[in-house]
Design a protein around this nucleic acid. Structure first.
Lengths: 201, 201
DNA sequence: CACCTTATAGAACGATCGTTCGTTTGTGTC
DNA sequence: GACACAAACGAACGATCGTTCTATAAGGTG
């Protein structure tokens, strides 16, 4: 890795955690420059525009999410075990990754949902990819005979995202100590309602 | 209402819809001044600081939420009918109110959840008040015999907020045409799982 | 070493930010 | 009409914003 790539990655690391606190829109070249002990122009040259920097941060975030949340879960056998692992990793991924201020993409989703442009497109792409992954995982649980054949996979993915978002808000804003427990309870109810009926005894 | 109050309310109206698009943190005195055809200093004098303006917008938002979502629902008899009305009004309240860019408080929740200060406190207060309202409404449905006595009202309020948030994101960012249907499906499943068991026939 | 490319720094630009100050305009009261 | 008070304005401040330009320093290759 050349010197340029190395510096660029160091900038991105700092921008990543900075964006976690200030939001992708709140990123400032000046602040980022002094955090990385660089000049504004020197830093700027690595991206060419602020928007490119923001896009790079979003892509970085998406990649780390895949590394921390999805990849480990995909080492588990397909089915409910894998789905559960995704949810568990997902709920805690802001602790594992360097995200003191919460998930970057989720914050960006609220920030850019009504501002057309490349940033909104990138966020939308990330969230659609996640939703597809969730849908696929649910469908495999159906194929494995763990969930009922008439299960609406998209509906489950939809509700899982709801559980994630309210959990983040409850933890981060409301300081609700029961958030994690409630999230798991919601997940269990979601799975139970769609599980195949075992023989009653 | 004196001239001052009148102008202040006009500013607040504009700030309200502006904040819907730019976020409470993205409010700009300059932009707001030209939208209201006032000078920056003339507008500024009504609030004394930007933070006071932001707080006023949050309070305005909370009041409109109560007017549009809660008050109509509370004209219905207590119980599941009222709970359902709250959810229905809630999901659509950004259309009814002048909120082209989505719910101001919900966006502010993601924006300030890690930035201590009066703004975060105000947002937290608003969301806690809503959660209390939801919990009370659920408990009354229990008292009315519509939900089971062992129902965890806090858990239901928790999950309702999840449904709201994922619905907003699905509609606004993902342009998901099924969001409303899925939200109602999630709500129905939530209620059904806690409903009292009627005699099987 | 020289050479070329890349990387970084420094200074400055115009724009916008929130805020302050002094003044002018408007409104209502005696 | 004179006075008091509130409301709005216009100009300016210092700070920060993203960006551009030019120059210096560092790295790699012959």
């Amino acid at each position: 890795m050349g010197k340029g790539e190395q510096t660029r990655q160091a900038i991105l690391d700092e921008a990543f955690s900075l964006a976690s606190c200030c939001g992708v829109g709140g990123l400032s070249i000046g602040v980022l420059a002094e955090r990385t002990h660089m000049s504004k122009s020197g830093l700027f040259a690595h991206f060419g525009s602020k928007e490119e920097l923001q896009l790079a941060v979003l892509r970085e975030s998406q990649q780390r999410f895949a590394d921390v949340v999805l990849r480990p879960a995909f080492r588990l056998p397909r089915g409910l075990a894998r789905l559960r692992a995704i949810v568990i990793n997902w709920l805690d991924w802001t602790k594992v990754a360097n995200l003191p201020g919460g998930c970057v993409i989720n914050a960006a989703a609220a920030e850019f949902d009504d501002q057309p442009g490349p940033l909104r497109d990138e966020v939308k792409h990330s969230l659609l990819a996640l939703r597809r992954t969730l849908v696929d995982t649910v469908k495999k649980a159906v194929e494995a005979g763990e969930l009922r054949p008439d299960t609406d996979a998209e509906q489950i993915a939809f509700e899982l995202e709801g559980i994630y978002q309210v959990t983040q808000q409850s933890r981060r804003l409301l300081d609700d100590p029961d958030a994690d427990r409630r999230a798991l309870a919601a997940f269990d109810r979601l799975v139970r309602d769609h599980a195949v009926i075992h023989a009653k005894e």
